[in-house]
Design a protein around this nucleic acid. Structure first.
Ligand SMILES: [Mn+2]
Ligand SMILES: [Mn+2]
Ligand SMILES: [Zn+2]
Ligand SMILES: [Zn+2]
Lengths: 155, 155
DNA sequence: TTCATAGTTGAGAGATAATATCAATAAAAT
DNA sequence: ATTTTATTGATATTATCTCTCAACTATGAA
């Protein structure tokens, strides 16, 4: 295990140390800037943008250079620990989460539910037959209001 | 009908005059730059980027300023005559087409099939029950190889 | 606990995408 | 044909993201 990570394990949320361990296992160093980004991503929950990560970090006076924030996001994405969320307009949001998945995003507050099974298999088969395409990937994202925002808007 | 459009109706593809008429009906002027963009979008078919529109137009020596290309794309989008396509990486491609729809895009050549019914209704109901969200919009895009690219890759 | 090394960082430059400004222009209504 | 008003395009500007490279630091080995 990483010496650097051991030294601060006590001060970090478990979700952060989990992710940091996966970085170490993949052969990457566990550094201050990387831990900072992991803390921000964990704290923000939901669907966050790089800009929001940066703001969260700046507010706490522990922001790495913007280049390193982008680099860490890219790294997490390459390791499949972070998924990109395509919004209706907004295209560059992310959420922590392993592997293939989909998102139900609140357009009011950014809250988010992740789900694995999107049920497009039969659609895919049907379209392959009709069009002759061989389909190898799909994107399914849903948008709406979370219970809280729904309640707030009813008031 | 637009005087400007009448004067060049003969020289334009029907698909272009159709779209131009819809601009006029919505109260917008039918101008040279706008017709040029419509010609490019119609000619490119499939899923095109703003950059590809510009290249097509430059190659024919009739490119409006880049600002006007963006403006026309935005206008068509606002009028719901153009849909934005979210790719896996590539986020800003467009396709002509009215109203809500989905796309099956060839990752080899950019060819595209549009389809209306994506069959996520039952998924939506299921998730609304489980999460308490009220879902109001969805994104469904499929990717793969078109028959031609499939044949080419089999060689 | 050092030490050497290879991976990482950050400031700043640079690339790319898109928007804002505004005087000049051109389509449309008259 | 003239007037009116939307539109255009050159240019500047902003936003997003990547690159470069000297300085730094986490890690494995000693
Ligand atoms: Mn799926
Ligand atoms: Mn997108
Ligand atoms: Zn909400
Ligand atoms: Zn193809």
């Amino acid at each position: 295990m990483s010496r650097y990570l051991e030294a601060r394990r006590e001060t970090l949320p478990p979700a952060v140390t989990d992710l940091a361990e996966q970085l170490a296992e993949a052969g990457y160093k566990v550094t201050g800037p990387r831990l900072a980004v992991l803390k921000a991503a964990t704290a923000l929950r939901g669907a966050f943008s790089v800009h929001e990560l940066e703001q969260w970090l700046i507010a706490r006076g522990e922001s790495p250079g913007i280049a390193s924030i982008f680099r860490t996001v890219r790294l997490l994405s390459d390791l499949n620990l972070l998924q990109r969320i395509h919004g209706l307009d907004d295209c560059h949001r992310y959420s922590l989460g392993k592997g293939h998945g989909h998102h139900l995003v609140c357009t009011g507050c950014g809250a988010m539910e992740r789900f694995e099974d999107c049920g497009v298999q039969s659609l895919i088969q049907q379209l392959e037959q009709r069009t002759g395409y061989r389909i190898s990937a799909h994107l399914v994202e849903l948008f709406g209001l979370c219970p809280r925002c729904l309640a707030a808007s009813a008031a």
